[in-house]
Structures are given as structure tokens and as C-alpha cells.
Amino acid sequence: MGVMRIGHINIRVLDMPAALKHYEDVLGLIRTDEDSAGNVYLKGWDEWDKYSVMLSPADRAGMNHIAYKVENDADLDTLKKRIADYGTDVEEVPAGQLPYCGRALRFWLPSGHLMYLYAEKDFVGKSVGTTNPEPWPDGLKGAGAHWLDHALLMCELDPERGVNKVAEATKFMKEVLDFRLCEQVMVGPDGDIQAATWMARTSTPHDIAFVGGPKMGLHHCAFFLDEWNDVLKAADIMAKHKVKIDVTPQRHGITRGYTIYFFDPSGNRNETFAGLGYLSQPDMPVITWTEEELGRGIFYHTGELNEAFTTVYTEGA
């Protein structure tokens, strides 16, 4: 019941041929369709729905919207009421308005990001099939990413002006959409300012994350790889293709994931995220990171935030 998982992200790109070379040849996503407006749809080989990435040609980089899939059509009615009762404007859009999806709910998070919820999307399946499937298909390109894993959305944080969109977005996700808070960063003189959160509906450490910054935006969207060796290979592939790498293979303290941060050709940050971290369950206590250990939380090995982490990102709406 309720939200199952991240469904897709709609990213704006400045140069579609360059973007496709990146998402297909480097990340290894598979192109499933293209529409008359020039939007291109892609999925990871391990995903069964039609797309998890929708690339839209534009003259500004960033994210148009993010969408999550709910389990049953009736969940949309329940959640529509809960969103409205919370005081958030919510619109129901007819089937097909969200490409290749059934009816959907459209609303803005308190952080200013546009979110959709839908219950149905065209099914294309995996090339390995469902009867005695091989563990992975032949012909994968690049890193061969399995699926869109999560996104990190930057939220405006300015405690001196009393602005904390991280806390507001987190409260909404928890109280309205039943996301569980798995980890958080608490900062400020009294350690009472929630500056970042990692939240889940699946049993992974996060299906969405919110981090405070000077303005709202898209920090990154992440694609899943199995394990550490795949991360190293992905980094080799990025180097071969001269992809701008932000942070070379490393472990996150928070979520325990193995990571590479890098940029697509329009400057949207991507991540390859490997390892399932730990099993996050409804009764798991929340993990808290303090300001002193924030560097190790984000980048466990170097223990330092790089300068670009909260400055370099693209638009979130």
C-alpha cells in the first residue's frame, strides 16, 4: 500500500545527442522511446517499467519533476486526500498526461520540487525475461546500471532567516507519504537544525534525500550498481569517455553506499550507487550524524566535504 519506489526523473538537457551518449554509452541505460516533443525515455536493464529517466531538451539544465510509483490505483485517492488535508494543493491529471502513465497526482513539495505519484506505467519487461532468466543480459553498454535508485534534492536552508525546507520536506514525506526517516544530519549551536535527511519506502537506506543549501535544486540522481568492483569499472568507463568526475570512488558514511559523483554533459550531477547498505525497516532507529562528523558522513574516506558538494548543482524546478 502507498508509495512503492522511485518511478522516474525528468531531467533537462542542453544537448540531446551528448546527453544520450552519456546516459546510454556511459551509464548503460537503454532507450525505450522518443516522443514528438523530442523527449527521450530510458530505463536500466533491470527495470521492467517503460522508463525511469525522461530527458527533455531545454536551454536550462536541471530537473522538471520527480515521480514515485504507488502500489494500487486506490492509493492515489487516499494520498490525494492526505495531501490536500495537509494543506498542499494537489491536482489529479488524466492518464497519458504523465507520459505512458495512468492517472497521476501532481503537487509541489514544500521545498519547491514538483512531484508526481502514479500507479500504472507501460510495461516493457527485462530482456532476460521471467522464465529461467540469466543473471544479466548480453550487450550492456558502459556501466550497465541496473536502475534509477534515488535522487537527492537540494532544499533552501537559512536558519538565521528561519528557513529550513529540509525539515519541511521531510515532515511532508513522513506524515503524508509515509516515508521513513533513516538518517539525518543535525547542525547548529544546539544541534537542533535538521540540515539533511535520507528517507525510504523500500528496504534500502534511501529512496529520496534532502540536503540544505543556499537555494533549491537538483543535487543528483543515482543509478544502482551491484558492488565495489562495478564502481571501479564505472569510473574507468567515465575516464575513457572523459566524463567530468566530481568525486572518485569512495564510501558514504551515511547509507554506507559506494559512490562516484559525476556530471552529465549538461552539468546535472549523477551518482553510481552500489551496495544495498543495510536493511532499513520500519522499526529501525533513526541514525543521526553530528556537524563535527558531517565530512565523514558524506565522504567516509577523505572525511571532508568537497567545496563543490553544496555549491555546484543544477535547478530543481
Binding site: D246, S266, N268
Partner: peptide, 11 residues
Amino acid sequence: PSGCHGGGCGV
């Protein structure tokens, strides 16, 4: 300043 190298972040 060096950022995304893709014309997206503006730094």
C-alpha cells in the same frame, strides 16, 4: 571556480 564542466551549474 571549477564545477560541473557542462554549462549547467554556473560557478
